[in-house]
Design a protein around this nucleic acid. Structure first.
Lengths: 267, 267
DNA sequence: CTATCTTTGTGCACGCGTTCACAAAGACAT
DNA sequence: ATGTCTTTGTGAACGCGTGCACAAAGATAG
C-alpha cells in the first residue's frame, strides 16, 4: 500500500527484518479481533488467512520475536497480542502533532486510528491565523508559532505533515529541530532529514498512478490475446471500449508536454 | 511508506519490475517540476537527488523503459515526462469512484491529486440516504443503490474505498462485480478479491505503528550505549524522560488485554 | 507408557532488487 | 579528424525476503 514505503536505510533493527515489522500491525489487528470473540488459541494457518499472508511467512515472522507457539496447538491469542504490542512499543503513550489542518489534516484529526493503540493527538497546528482557536475534532487548532513549545512541553517525538507540498520541507525542519524523530508525510514531496530521523510517506497520487499502470497493462494484454478471457477481463475490455480507448495500443493522444504541476497537494 | 505496499502477486509486468513502477511517479513529479522551470536536460545524478533515490537505481529503472538518455549529456526532460506518462497510462482519462464519504472520503474528494494526472472523480457514493444529493467538492453524493449503474455508465475501472472496515469487503465485492479491476483501500481490513483485480492499501494506523517501533528502538539503543550521542539522540532521550518512560527497558505497564477493537476506522 | 496426529520452527534454495564499477557512447574542443 | 571528458547503460555480485518442505515438539488417545 500506499504509500508506501519509504527511504529508510532499512538496517535490520535489532534482528527483526523491516518486512516483518511492517506485518506485525496486520497480525495485531487480526489477533485483536479474535481476542474480542474470546478465541483462546489460533493456528498459524488460521491467523495467516485472517491477516492475508502466507502461513510459513507468519511463522517465520513470529520466530523473530521468540517462540510463543505450542506445537500441535497453535498460538495463545492474548499472549501474542501482548507480545506484539510490546514489540511495537504500543504499551506506551505516543503524543502526536498534526501540522496542516486542511481537508486532509482535519480528516486525520477525526480518524479513529489515532486515538486507539496508544497514539494521542497532542496538538493540531496550522499556519493560518484565522484557524487558531477553532476546534477540530474537539481540539483547538494552534498557530505554527507555538510548534516548538508544544513539542517540547508534550515530549512529542512523532509528527504528521499534512501541509501543501511547498511548506513541507520547512515544517519538517522545524519539527526535527524541536526534537521530533519520526515523521509521517502526506505532502507530495521528498523530505530530506538528518540521520536518525525516520520518514514514512503516504502519497495518494502515487498509489493511483501505480494502479493506472496495471490497469493499462491488463487492457493491453487481453487485447493481444483475444482468447478465452475470464469474466473480469471481459468486463474490463468493454469498459475500455466504452471509454473510447484503443485497446492494445496506447491512446497516443498527444496532450502536449503535460503542463500540470505539483502533481498533488493535500489540504 | 504508507502506503504501503500491498499484496500483489508482483509478477513482473511486461518486464518492468514492480519496484521500478512504484518509483516512476516519483521521477515524473521531479521531472514535471524541472519542466516548469524550463530546464531542457537533466543528468541521472541531479534527477536522482531530486527524487530522493540512488542515481544507479534511477538509470537502471530508465533502462527498462528503453534508452532515452544521451551519454555525456543526460536526459531530455520533456521527452522523459512524455515517456513515463505514457508508460504509466496517464495519457488517458481514468474515471474514479469514491465510496464512503465520511471525513476521509470528503478529504479525498477535495484532494488536488485526483484532479491532476488524468484521474477524474466520476462519482461520490455513500450508504447514508441523508447524504444523497448533498454536494461535496462540487459533486453531488449518490446513494449506494446507484453504484452498479454509475460504474457501467462511466466505464469506471478504479474504485476508492473509504468506508468503515465493516462495510469494506461488501463494497469491494460490488465494485468488482460491476467491473472495477483496481481498488485503493483505505479501510483497515484485508480485502479478498478474485485474480486479475489489483488492490493497494493505505493504512494510517499501520504507518504509525511502524514509526512507533523505530522510535522505541531508538530510545532503547541510546540508553544502552550511553556514549557519544548525536544531537538528535540527545533530544530523543530527554523527550523519553519527559514522557516518563523508562529508557532502555520497556514500560511494562500491563494495560491488560488491550481491549480496543477494530484498530482504525476511516470516516 | 507408547503410538499417533497436529502444528510449530527452521534449514535451504530461489528470485527480486540494489549497488558497484566500468566499458561504451557520444558531445565538444582543438 | 582526433582526443578528451562526461555521463549513460549494464554485467556481475550481493543481500534481503519468500516459500517449500521437513524434522522436532508436544498434545492427545489408547
Amino acid at each position: 500500500m500506499a504509500t508506501g514505503r519509504t527511504h529508510r536505510p532499512a538496517t535490520r533493527s535489532r534482528g527483526i527484518p523491516e518486512a516483518t515489522v511492517a506485518r506485525l500491525p496486520l497480525y495485531l489487528r487480526a489477533l485483536t479481533a479474535l481476542s474480542e470473540r474470546s478465541v483462546p488459541t489460533v493456528s498459524s494457518e488460521e491467523l495467516a488467512a485472517a491477516a492475508g499472508v502466507n502461513s510459513a511467512k507468519l511463522r517465520k515472522d513470529f520466530s523473530y520475536l521468540g517462540s510463543y507457539g505450542t506445537r500441535g496447538v497453535g498460538y495463545d491469542v492474548e499472549y501474542l497480542v501482548y507480545q506484539i504490542s510490546r514489540e511495537l512499543g504500543l504499551t506506551q503513550d505516543w503524543p502526536v502533532v498534526i501540522v496542516g489542518i486542511g481537508n486532509l489534516g482535519a480528516a486525520l484529526a477525526n480518524y479513529g486510528g489515532f486515538a486507539s493503540r496508544g497514539f494521542r493527538v497532542a496538538a493540531l497546528i496550522d499556519a493560518d491565523p484565522a484557524m487558531a482557536g477553532k476546534p477540530v475534532a474537539g481540539i483547538p487548532v494552534q498557530h505554527t508559532d507555538e510548534l516548538e513549545k508544544i513539542i517540547q512541553d508534550e515530549g512529542v517525538s512523532i509528527g504528521v505533515i499534512a501541509t501543501p507540498a511547498g511548506a513541507a520541507q520547512q515544517v519538517c525542519e522545524r519539527l526535527v529541530a524541536a526534537g521530533v524523530t519520526s515523521i509521517l508525510n502526506f505532502a507530495p514531496t521528498v523530505l530530506s532529514v538528518p540521520d536518525g530521523v525516520d520518514v514514512r510517506k503516504v502519497d495518494l497520487s502515487i498509489e493511483l498512478q501505480i494502479l493506472a499502470f496495471h490497469e493499462q497493462r491488463k487492457a493491453g494484454e487481453l487485447a493481444a490475446a483475444g482468447t478465452v478471457v475470464p469474466a473480469v477481463a471481459a468486463r474490463q475490455e468493454s469498459a475500455a471500449v466504452r471509454r473510447g480507448t484503443a485497446v492494445g495500443q496506447e491512446s497516443v493522444a498527444d496532450q502536449g508536454p503535460d503542463g500540470d504541476v505539483p502533481a498533488v497537494m493535500p489540504t
